[in-house]
């Protein structure tokens, strides 16, 4: 799952640095993630994992790092 998330961040995050250079816990907002890009990120993640983020997850914190996204998605993907 982490690899898939990394690929989506690479494609849609429009970061100012290479995603490969970031740890899973790195602050993506400090790496240049804008709120506009984070919307595209959410849409791509929803499509990839066939999920819908509920309103409670649609806040800044849920997308601040690769680890945070993984935690949010894990809650929604049937195990």
């Amino acid at each position: 799952m982490t690899e898939d998330i990394r690929n989506i961040v690479k494609e849609h995050g429009r970061l100012s640095v290479d995603v490969a250079s970031l740890t899973d816990d790195a602050d993506l907002y400090a790496a240049g993630l804008t709120s506009h890009a984070s919307v595209n990120l959410m849409l791509a993640l929803e499509a990839k994992f066939d999920i819908e983020f509920p309103e409670r997850m649609l806040r800044r914190k849920s997308f601040e790092s690769i680890a945070a996204m993984k935690a949010a998605i894990s809650e929604l993907v049937p195990q």
Binding site: S35, H36, V39, M42, L43, E46, E52, F53, P54, E55, L58
Partner: peptide
């Protein structure tokens, strides 16, 4: 901006 947020927002 609102239009972009509405793409993922759920009422």
């Amino acid at each position: 901006t609102t239009a972009s947020l509405l793409l993922v927002h759920k009422e």
